[in-house]
Nucleic acid binder design. Structure first.
Lengths: 163, 163
DNA sequence: ATTTTATGTCAGCCATATTGACTTATTTGT
DNA sequence: ACAAATAAGTCAATATGGCTGACATAAAAT
């Protein structure tokens, strides 16, 4: 029962290692979002707008349901943000061809431009981190993050089988 | 100029690799916070309370300024959350011995108990991811995250020199 | 024909962040 | 000793982004 903080005690090391992971994740995410948030503010948008723009840009023609499934928010929450983006001409909706209840979402040129501007900053941040950490580290980074993601969403990151 | 999507083109690979990084970070952070948020809701607290409890638990006797420096929010934002936690007996404040303007923050037993309960879930999630990814991957994970963190905060994660 | 699904909308609530202005106590520097 | 800077707190107003509940419409599925 003694020596609970000794470095010879693997349980303590593990505990500390995990806490460092928690904290690094917090700091990294904090800094990861900081720059884009500034840019968004210039447009009167928030982080929620960015997420919508980002995922619609990634999945042109996606449905509202799919988007909700990714964001894990309610449709009421999405609604406000999405309709702003539609009304201001960043996103277009068009009825699905097989299921006409759907409103398939895509970026307009204006939307794509904003997406680029926003994501560029984050890409640069990650690129810098990747470069300085090296390819092996990136491989490990991906492995760990993948393990933290809810099972159903992991397939998004495995080779092929995009959807 | 042709073949822009070929796997032989390192620029395309890089772009896609970076986007995957962005998305994995989003999904991992989303799932990382989801469980603790549920627990917090039972206490009528939000994520902000968790952050305060977490960092005060990690740095007993820390000042309000230090906490603000970590969270990157304004003191007005912190104020509400912090005073709730103090009034409800999760955190104690005591004047600094050398500088009596300071209110040094610590968890009460009640606060430490809540901290444990909240962090346990996140620790378990990370532990699972670490275990399944392996030690080398964890090393890489840490390296990349460290590279994403604002220079000034990196020292928190380097051996010794704790403060 | 009925039920289920995809989407949208209205209304209200709450948490968390912001800015700006001001106060108090205490320390620091000239 | 006095002025300036600092640590912390507070009041007021505002915005974003979540939530629930209730309800509506159109189209698909059974």
């Amino acid at each position: 029962m003694a020596d609970i903080k000794s470095p010879a005690n693997p349980l303590f090391l593990r505990e500390d290692e995990l806490r460092q992971g928690i904290e690094m994740l917090f700091f990294a995410y904090r800094d990861f979002t900081a720059k884009a948030d500034q840019t968004l503010a210039q447009f009167g948008f928030g982080r929620a707008h960015h997420r919508v723009i980002y995922f619609v840009g990634r999945n042109p023609g996606m449905t509202v349901s799919e988007l909700l499934g990714i964001l894990h928010i309610t449709k009421q929450s999405l609604s406000r943000v999405l309709s702003q983006l539609v009304h201001q001409g960043f996103i277009t909706q068009q009825p699905g061809s097989t299921d006409r209840r759907q409103r398939l979402l895509s970026l307009t040129d204006k939307g794509a431009e904003l997406e680029r501007k926003l994501t560029e900053e984050q890409r640069a941040l990650i690129a810098r981190a990747y470069r300085s950490a090296g390819a092996d580290a990136v491989e490990g980074f991906r492995k760990v993050l993948l393990g933290m993601i809810e099972e159903g969403d992991r397939r998004r990151f495995r080779p092929s089988l995009p959807r």
